[in-house]
Design a protein around this nucleic acid. Structure first.
Lengths: 147, 147
DNA sequence: GTTGAAACACTGCCTCA
DNA sequence: TGAGGCAGTGTTTCAAC
C-alpha cells in the first residue's frame, strides 16, 4: 500500500484524466518511455488502487435530465452513516452521497427532469421518516477540473 | 441537436459508465449488434454531444490528498457568476465549482492534504476580498453511482 | 526496451427496410 | 436515406524474452 508515485505516473494520470481512452502508444512519446513501459505503469496504478476505473462523461442535460441540485440532509440522531447512504442511494435520481462531519449530516447530488420531479424527490426524502430537515441548493452551472 | 436516443444507446452508456475502456467487441454481443454498428453508435453519441469524453477514476486519498471538503461561499453582491468560477478554479485544490441559485452563491469541492492545508485554502478564499462568508462541510465518506 | 502474435479499431462497400 | 453487416487493413495490446 506504500503508493510510490513519481512525476511520470502523475503525468500519465493527468493525460488519462483528460482522455481516458488515450492509447499507450499515444502517451509513450509524451512521457518519454516505450509503449510497454507505459502499459506496465498504468497496470501498476490499477493494481495498487490509485486508478479505480475508467468511465464515460455524459451530458445529462441532453438526455432530458436538465436540473442538478444538491440537498443538505439532517437525519435523526439514531441514524447510522450506512443507513443514510443506503436510503439516499436507493433513489435513481441520486447521483452521489457525501456524508458530512457536523451540520448537515449529508450532502446529496441529484439529477432530475424538471422542478416537479425535484419536488417529488424531496418529498420522498421527507416521507422516509429518518430525515429531519432538508435544504435544497439548485445548481445554475458547474465547472470541473479537466473534464 | 434533436438527440434521439433509443434503448440500445442507453445500454451502451450504462456499459461505458461502468467501464469506459470496454471494447466495442465486448459490448457488441451485449447489445446484439455488430462491432462496427456499436462503434458507429458511440461515435454518434460523441458527435451529438451526449458523450463529452472519457476519463480515469482516481483514488486521491492514496495520492496523499486525504481530505475532501465542500465549502459554501457567499460573494459580494457585485460579483458575477463568471468571476466566482474564475477565482475558485484558479486554486489547484479546487476540484469543482457549482454556482447556486439562492444562498449560498457557490458550492466548491476541495481536495487537500490535511487540516492545515484546508485552513490555508479557506484563508485564501477569505483574503480574496470578494467572499463575504464561508461554511465548510468536511466529507467523511462518499458514495457515487457506478464509479 | 524489443519483438511477435492475437485482439481490436477503423473504413469502405454492400444489403436491407 | 439511414442503419446494420461483412471483410480487409492498420493499430494496439499483451505477454513473452
Amino acid at each position: 500500500m506504500a503508493a510510490e508515485i513519481d512525476e511520470t505516473d502523475r503525468l500519465l494520470l493527468r493525460l488519462l484524466r483528460a482522455d481516458g481512452r488515450r492509447t499507450y502508444s499515444e502517451m509513450a512519446p509524451e512521457v518519454g518511455l516505450s509503449v510497454a513501459a507505459v502499459k506496465r505503469r498504468v497496470d501498476r496504478l490499477r493494481d495498487i488502487g490509485i486508478i479505480t476505473g475508467f468511465t464515460v462523461q455524459v451530458d445529462y442535460a441532453r438526455l432530458g435530465w436538465g436540473i442538478e441540485a444538491f440537498i443538505e440532509l439532517s437525519f435523526l440522531g439514531s441514524t447510522t452513516v450506512d443507513a443514510m447512504v443506503d436510503s439516499a442511494s436507493a433513489m435513481p435520481e441520486v447521483q452521489a452521497v457525501h456524508t458530512i462531519a457536523g451540520d448537515p449530516d449529508a450532502l446529496v447530488l441529484l439529477r432530475v427532469r424538471d422542478i416537479a420531479h425535484l419536488q417529488q424527490v424531496i418529498d420522498a426524502f421527507r416521507r422516509g421518516g429518518k430525515v429531519t430537515s432538508t435544504k435544497t441548493l439548485m445548481v445554475l452551472g458547474s465547472w470541473s477540473r479537466d473534464s
